[in-house]
Write a protein that binds this DNA or RNA. Structure first.
Lengths: 221, 221
DNA sequence: AAAAAAACATTCACGACTGTTTTTTTGTTT
DNA sequence: AAACAAAAAAACAGTCGTGAATGTTTTTTT
């Protein structure tokens, strides 16, 4: 154990930077032309390094893909957590919740990458294990965010989790639909319908025995 | 032996039967281990024929994949059309509509196959073109089904199309979510919420100026 | 029964990708 | 400055998938 602090950091940092570049290149290729195209050669070329150098940092392709996926979703998770903090410290309404989730957490390019990896993970067992683990963790972040964002509803957590799952499912499906057949107007209308559904659900849960409450009870933003 | 009544139809039927077997094998492999694994060798082996024979019927791998996709979704489309006829000739309620769509049209194994092909189609331009065309057509079948199934609501078509898109998006997203983290209870709860959302939307559109109508106005099946 | 056409089978050539091994370069320690 | 280890590059071997070329059997036609 010698004077590690500076020296080791230097090397490690360099290695970390290299790995970050490799992951970035991998992610770009996945987003542009799919996971299958993210071969060792392609990634190394985009990075401007040799394949040998790459293999030094990521011994196998699976290692590279998994680490890329992990960091990719880690970023998404960070966004969710930050939003959760924002929302906890201030104002929150259903529309903000839904739109934040849709715009910030599910940008369209992220979805295609996600689908690519999910599909790949279905067959490649090692990748599949990692992907599933990451996605479960991410979903829990969604739940935390949702619980905080919808805390004013004062609904029990189980009830909120249903709403959250509903929301996430609809948003993901909407991204897919818009990917197949883009239609901004319809997209907006569906988002409106989702928001109304959530508000209505909250209102109904708050007044279970009564008749349908008027939606105007809620503050209209 | 040229005298069998059964064989009389000859090459065309035989060729069609062969192609059907090849498509079936391809579809099975896609469902089990993914599109990437559906190589010429794998498909031919599962069929018990040689690769040469396969190449005779499908000159390239893309041809095989595209034709398999076409028939795969054609079957889904037939289901939707048949359901649309059923619903047009008889009873229909929102729950039946949603559950039919979810159970009959989006069986879970169909979804993974669909995702596989959609993801593949994103990069393989020829396959992508075909997939997009097929899916657009399928979605129009969804719309026809939805318009008929929800005809009692007497809503204008544009309004119905929003509801339909909303429904399809949520169902697809729910399949994905259930694929990542299965939870039957939550799945059922989300479906219930979806049904309630649609009913509420219909009710709100039917009485735009009035207060929220009581849901008991609808007949309870 | 013979010719023609389709179906089927076998083999080969080419390229791509993965992962291993070997060599060179770079930078740190003594 | 020299020794040394890590990083980077290059060369290598093995596997796999595709598609083409060629040969064989079966079925239809005449």
């Amino acid at each position: 154990m010698q004077t590690d602090s500076e020296i080791k950091d230097g090397r490690e940092l360099k290695g970390a930077a290299m790995r970050a570049r490799l992951r970035a290149a991998t992610e770009e290729i996945i987003a542009e032309v799919g996971v299958e195209a993210a071969s060792g050669k392609a990634v190394a070329e985009r990075c401007g390094v040799s394949r040998g150098a790459m293999l030094h940092h990521y011994p196998t392709r699976d290692d590279l893909i998994i680490d890329t996926a992990r960091h990719f979703w880690q970023r998404a998770r960070d966004v969710v957590v930050r939003q959760a903090e924002d929302v906890a410290s201030g104002r929150s309404d259903v529309r903000t919740y839904v739109m934040t989730l849709y715009e910030e957490v599910f940008p369209s390019n992220a979805l295609v990458t996600m689908l690519d990896l999910v599909v790949l993970g279905r067959t490649e067992s090692r990748i599949g294990l990692a992907v599933n683990e990451i996605l479960s963790d991410l979903f829990h972040a969604y739940e935390e965010f949702g619980v905080k964002a919808l805390s004013r509803s004062q609904l029990p957590p189980e009830e909120l989790r249903i709403i959250i799952t509903f929301t996430v499912s609809t948003l993901r499906g909407l991204r897919i639909q818009n990917n197949i057949e883009p239609d901004r107007a319809k997209e907006a209308a569906v988002l409106d319908m989702l928001i109304a559904s959530i508000e209505q659900r909250i209102a109904a849960a708050a007044h279970p025995a009564a008749e349908m409450p008027r939606q105007t009870d809620e503050d209209p933003t």
